[in-house]
Design a protein around this nucleic acid. Structure first.
Lengths: 200, 200
DNA sequence: ATATCGTCCGAACGGTCGGACGGACTATCC
DNA sequence: GGATAGTCCGTCCGACCGTTCGGACGATAT
């Protein structure tokens, strides 16, 4: 079957959570929007925490599918790093109704220890590391200057993506996305230029 | 009188909100922590929304006092920009119990139109502009290269501050703050070097 | 001494929260 | 065809939500 009821619930849950937050996502509202009873919906999950964890998993699959997977067709290293950040920006523009699910969830749960926070940290940390890994490959392949600090550069690129989401959502102006794009491309191109110059 | 009851309430409210969010801040819990009745506390504010708005104002005064005001003793331009970002990083480290109040509040309310969101956007936008203004002054004073794009650079610096808060709070590792510091200083120093070279 | 004011209280309101329960329907398998 | 398992329903619960209300208390002003 193409889409189980559970999947339909989670799809809607992720959308609501991106707007209202993972805690603001309530079972009653979710049921109402899906024309279900609370108990009928609740039966698919043992608890609200399980619903939240399932929503995180659903959102991470969407992110994987929209941002990471398509970059797999680009050559590992600098090209793939650029593909990831490009896809990431597109995902920020129209990925979820309420902006980046994980950015919002991170700041919502960073002060609430528990399984939900741990899962958010694990998943978001993974995307971060994926980007960093492509930068490392770019360095070993001579596409970036050999003295480039991949950790710092990943920090920088991820910072720009976060800022784009923040500014775009809070002020509603798409310039934030194009500004981030300009900066991301210039950083990757500049480092690339230095790397090529050095190895030439 | 040095500290009214209302001020005591708001001080506690801001601290709770930085952890639980502005919506997660409940009147009942706030009253309990202050050994007050809900209604007694409620009397100081006409509604929960007014309490939230008052908490935002309180938090902005703390930010102003810890980040912006101390930078006033540095010379306008590059020095003051550096002082602001330095103070900002310190504020991220120990400003509020649950991390940057405004960063969390921004992402919590960016999808909820209303007076609270408007106020958050207004206040956070103000800090952003203050930083950008110092960069502009640095350019006109020849402390930064004349072709520096102040808008883009402010975007970049603010992005690093946001990333530092995100990483520090989510993963609990202070390296995030020192990484941001390294990048902030190198960006300001690099642009400064270019500016000085050009005007020399 | 009395009236007035701001401050705070306990009690209660209607509403919503997460969650538990038993029953009804349907599809599947023996 | 009867038992079984899964799905969904309506109903109910205790806890908590924001909010309202009437009144108690001390200080201040008249």
């Amino acid at each position: 079957m193409p889409s189980t009821k559970r999947d339909q619930i989670l799809e809607r849950a992720v959308s609501i959570a991106s707007v209202e937050g993972l805690e603001g996502l309530t079972i009653g509202r979710l049921a109402k929007e899906l024309n279900m009873s609370k108990s009928g919906l609740f039966g698919h999950f043992g608890s609200k925490e399980d619903l939240q964890l399932a929503a995180i998993k659903e959102a991470s699959e969407i992110f994987e599918q929209r941002v990471i997977a398509p970059a797999g067709s680009s050559e590992a290293g600098l090209d793939r790093a650029r593909a990831i950040t490009d896809n990431w920006l597109e995902y920020l523009a129209d990925g979820f109704e309420g902006g980046c699910f994980f950015h919002a969830a991170s700041l919502e749960f960073d002060g609430r220890p528990g399984r939900v926070k741990d899962e958010i940290a694990r998943v978001t940390g993974r995307w971060y590391v994926v980007l960093e890994e492509q930068l490392r490959r770019a360095i070993t392949r001579g596409q970036l200057a050999s003295d480039t600090d991949a950790t710092l550069m990943a920090f920088e690129l991820h910072a720009l993506l976060g800022e784009a989401n923040w500014a775009f959502r809070l002020f509603g102006r798409p310039e934030a996305l194009s500004r981030a794009r300009v900066l991301l491309h210039s950083k990757l191109a500049h480092a690339q230029g230095a790397g090529e110059r050095r190895t030439a």
